[in-house]
Design a protein around this nucleic acid. Structure first.
Lengths: 151, 151
DNA sequence: TCGGTATAGTTGCATTTGCAACCACAAAGC
DNA sequence: GCTTTGTGGTTGCAAATGCAACTATACCGA
């Protein structure tokens, strides 16, 4: 029984996007857990810091990139800091502000996580598309986020 | 600074997918909240039941369709039942089991939510794609989920 | 028919989220 | 300078999540 709703291609694509996303995230998280690695969002923090100049970012900046609310970011950084993966550093130019700085331990964890993560991306996602299809999909999705191709 | 990582089209598409998803869900939720409507997942329950035969589904079945863990589903149904939108009904064939049944109030809420939801889908998602693109994207995403086109 | 195993659903507890209130500092206007 | 308003970040509390343990029923095999 093809639902009437899903005859609208837009709505159908939307529904698929929701479902795919849930499934993929679950799968990635499972791969990380099985390898006794921390949650995916820890990786996001680590990689953002790693690629940032001086491996540091203002908290609000990090929050924006990760699409994370302030309070959530505070607590996420708390957890990472407790594990010695990042640290907070005062900001000279704006004394309200703080930097999150990647530590060597944080960098090491990022390097341990990446192979597992990459493998999961491949198994769950990449292997289903040609390079050309992946490029097209990335370009389409960029319309939704305003992300620039290179970012 | 185009990150080296993102030169792999697969990884780039993956990153875009994550970002788009977060942004879109946030936007939809915001639209619902502004219209003083309940969370998106309530809609998912209501629409699943609405389209199910006799507007009822076994809990485990509903959980599978929504990709929701058992315990989460229990609690989600608790909330909806407390609002009178669904009710639990014993299953004659398997006395361990329960049905979730859509109530008239639940159906009414689904109908109130849909226009807002549809509008949000259009603004955040649909308007950025042609019908043909949407069809293609849906088909691609179906590779990830094993979902059949008509489902 | 009995014992063991699997399945449907719930519950308790620890962790995480979301929201609003809050503190500290910065910036803009008088 | 002083006050008002805005911004960066944290905290408290209520709600939602994830996981493991638990109850009740079904199923399977000797």
């Amino acid at each position: 029984m093809p639902s009437r709703l899903l005859t609208d291609p837009t709505v159908r694509a939307w529904a698929r996007l929701l479902k795919a996303q849930k499934l993929l995230l679950e799968g990635v998280q499972q791969a990380l857990t099985e390898a006794e690695l921390p949650p995916l969002e820890w990786y996001d923090v680590l990689i953002e810091l790693k690629t940032a100049p001086e491996q540091r970012l203002r908290l609000f900046d990090l929050g924006e990139r990760m699409l994370l609310s302030r309070s959530n970011l505070t607590r996420l950084i708390d957890r990472l800091e407790k594990e010695g993966l990042v640290l907070r550093d005062n900001c000279a130019e704006d004394r309200r502000g703080l930097y999150a700085v990647l530590t060597p331990a944080g960098l090491a964890l990022q390097k341990r996580m990446w192979p597992v993560y990459q493998q999961a991306i491949h198994m769950l996602f990449g292997q289903h598309f040609s390079a050309e299809e992946a490029r097209t999909m990335a370009a389409w999705l960029e319309r939704l986020t305003g992300t620039e191709p290179g970012e």
